[in-house]
Simulated assay, not measured.
Amino acid sequence: MKADVAAQTRLLELAGVDAEIGRLDHQRRTLPEHAELAEAEKSVQSAKDAVVKAETQAGDLDRDIRRIERDVEGVRARTEKDQALLAGSGIGARQASELQHELDTLARRQGVLEDEQLDIMEQREAVGMDLQHAQRTLDEAEGAVAAVTERRDTAVADLDAARAGRDRAREGLLPMVPEDLLADYQRRREGGKVGAGLLREARCGACRLELDRTFLSQVRGKPADEVVHCEECGAILVRTKESGL
């Protein structure tokens, strides 16, 4: 293939722009904020789980407290009724004895219920503190997610702006390269390879490998407008005054 020396030199500019685009894309994919955000989101989920757990425990204890309160009220109501009967006239000794026995039983039952109520209320207080702590942790975790997201979005926007600038530069270079030469360059770039490199100090600018003397001798004998390829990586080997041939 033949191509004007100036057109081949344009390939070096194009390869440089493509290399910058590749670096920008790699930076965008590997921003540390991506990993930070993933960890921060895990922390949010963990904190949400802790809040749900504490809320569930608090709800269960609240139901227990209400149940015991109803039981205590029932015992108190029965106690008042029995006391009223016992204080009234017209009851026999046997009934009085039975009422007194029931009152004693009710008193013991009320004592047990009040002890249980106190214990559950203490548990509820502790769970309430756990819930407050879990909610604070969740708020902090969500704040961290927001902060990392903002930093990530800013970094992505900067990289996208730089990428857009490189895309415009690339579009400006494409018309300066003949179609057949550009097609050859693009084929070389398939699979993530470098399409063109400068021959300098017996090394290919694409793969950075030192080239064989016999190959360099063959290149030296080719016309300046002859398109040559690196024997190592296949990239278009651009020759300029820097090549030292």
Rank of each mutant, 00 (worst) to 15 (best):
M1A: 10
D4C: 06
Q8S: 07
L14F: 10
L14G: 12
L14P: 06
G16Y: 00
G16D: 01
V17Y: 01
E20C: 07
E20M: 10
I21K: 06
L24I: 15
L24V: 14
D25G: 08
D25I: 09
R28V: 05
R29P: 06
T30V: 11
L31D: 02
L31E: 03
P32W: 03
H34L: 07
A35D: 06
A38C: 11
E39S: 15
A40D: 00
A40V: 02
A40N: 01
A40L: 01
K42D: 14
S43F: 00
S43Q: 03
S43G: 12
S43N: 08
S46P: 02
K48C: 07
V52P: 02
K53Y: 09
K53V: 09
E55Y: 05
T56Y: 07
Q57N: 08
L61Y: 12
R63C: 04
R63F: 09
D64P: 02
D64Y: 08
I65L: 07
R67M: 06
D71I: 14
G74R: 03
G74K: 03
R76C: 07
A77D: 05
A77Y: 02
R78C: 10
D82G: 09
Q83N: 11
G88D: 14
G88R: 14
G88N: 15
S89F: 13
I91R: 09
I91S: 09
G92R: 12
R94S: 13
R94F: 14
Q95E: 13
S97I: 11
E98K: 13
L99P: 02
Q100N: 12
H101W: 04
E102H: 12
D104P: 09
D104Q: 15
R108W: 05
Q110E: 04
Q117V: 09
D119K: 15
Q123G: 04
R124D: 15
E125F: 15
A126R: 13
G128E: 00
D130G: 10
Q132T: 15
Q132H: 14
H133Y: 13
A134T: 03
R136N: 13
E142K: 14
G143D: 07
A144C: 08
A144T: 08
A146P: 01
A147Y: 02
T149H: 12
E150Y: 06
E150R: 13
R151Q: 09
T154R: 08
T154W: 04
A155R: 02
A155H: 03
A157G: 06
A157K: 05
D158A: 14
A162N: 11
R163S: 08
G165P: 03
R166P: 07
E171G: 14
G172D: 04
L173C: 14
L174V: 15
L174W: 02
M176T: 13
M176F: 03
V177C: 11
P178T: 11
D180V: 07
D184Q: 12
D184E: 11
D184M: 07
Y185A: 12
K193T: 10
V194C: 07
G195W: 00
G197N: 01
R200D: 07
A202Q: 04
C204W: 00
C207L: 06
R213D: 11
R213A: 13
R213C: 04
S217D: 13
V219D: 00
A224Y: 00
D225W: 00
D225Y: 02
V227Y: 00
V228E: 01
E232R: 08
C233R: 02
C233A: 15
C233K: 01
G234R: 00
A235K: 02
V238Y: 02
R239Y: 01
T240D: 05
S243W: 00
G244M: 01
